[in-house]
């Protein structure tokens, strides 16, 4: 039964950069319509594992992935799977806001255009507006959709990037420390947004802030030195961790 519920299912995943093993035998079941947080000290492999889920690691020459990752029961590392199609289904938001040097409108319309999601100009306008509304940035930019996306403030840029990612209608949204470059107010806005996104997507977020993990996620995975040490309900991990390493980390003794 549980097998069917999980959106992403990773089994014995190992990742190597040349001869360095970054991920050691990680197996995890990530549920649909849930926010899952990956926490752990720097260099523990949480970002690497996140990038395995949409095969962004393919763009790094020396990176090798072993083991199986299944999304909706389909092995994404199967030879028949096109990473381009996979990434349309698994959106990603990066650590640093990276709007394209184009207008705000074109930034959001980029994904729908390349995937042919809009049948007409009005259709595209509608998609862009919806994405910007769901990205909680519509009110701030609706009067200047032609202005360059790079001219927005850091927090606005990050919400624009989130809007850009959800405009392609992904099923899963991966977020790699989306708030690390933002101030507390912008962080609060993005976190609120993540909570809303949960109703439609499966969200996986890598974060350095344990408070953030506690605030936004329902499930938490703790990584340490490439191992998945502990995975479970966020409330349990933070109040009653099973592994001593988890406890040390969340109480601030390591990491």
């Amino acid at each position: 039964m549980e097998q069917i519920q999980s959106k992403i299912s990773a089994k014995n995943v190992q990742v190597f950069y040349d001869d360095n093993q970054a991920i050691k035998d990680v197996s995890v079941e990530i549920e649909d319509k849930t926010v899952t947080a990956f926490i752990g000290p720097s260099g523990c492999g949480k970002s690497t594992f996140l990038r395995c889920i949409n095969r962004m690691n393919d763009t790094i020459d020396v990176c090798r992935v072993q083991g199986d990752i299944l999304i909706d029961g389909e092995d994404i590392y199967d030879k028949r799977v096109d990473p381009v199609q996979l990434r349309a289904k698994v959106g990603m938001v990066f650590q640093k806001p990276n709007p394209f040097p184009k207008s705000i409108y074109d930034n959001v319309a980029y994904g729908p255009r390349i995937h042919g999601l809009a049948k007409s100009k009005t259709d595209l306008d509608h998609i862009v507006e919806q994405a910007l509304r769901r990205g909680a940035i519509w009110d701030e930019v609706k009067d200047r959709l032609d202005a360059p996306g790079t001219g927005l403030s850091g927090g606005q840029q990050q919400r624009l990037c989130i809007a850009r990612a959800i405009a392609t209608e992904p099923e899963i949204l991966l977020m790699d420390e989306p708030c690390s470059a933002l101030d507390p107010i912008a962080t609060a806005q993005v976190e609120e947004l993540i909570d809303e996104l949960r109703t439609r997507y499966s969200v996986v977020i890598v974060t350095h802030s344990m408070q953030q993990a506690a605030r936004v996620s329902q499930k938490t995975a703790f990584f340490h030195l490439g191992n998945l040490v502990e995975y479970g309900d966020t409330a349990t991990i933070f109040t009653n961790p099973q592994d001593p390493r988890t406890e040390s980390y969340i109480t601030g003794r390591i990491g």
Binding site: M56, T59, V84, K89, M92, F94, Y110, G111, I114, H115
Partner: peptide
Amino acid sequence: QALRDGSYGLGATKAETIRQVVLPA
């Protein structure tokens, strides 16, 4: 590289990324 990653992350192919993101930039 962040711009390229952003484009790949949206499911763009290499050609689309170069033509629509890298070259304009």
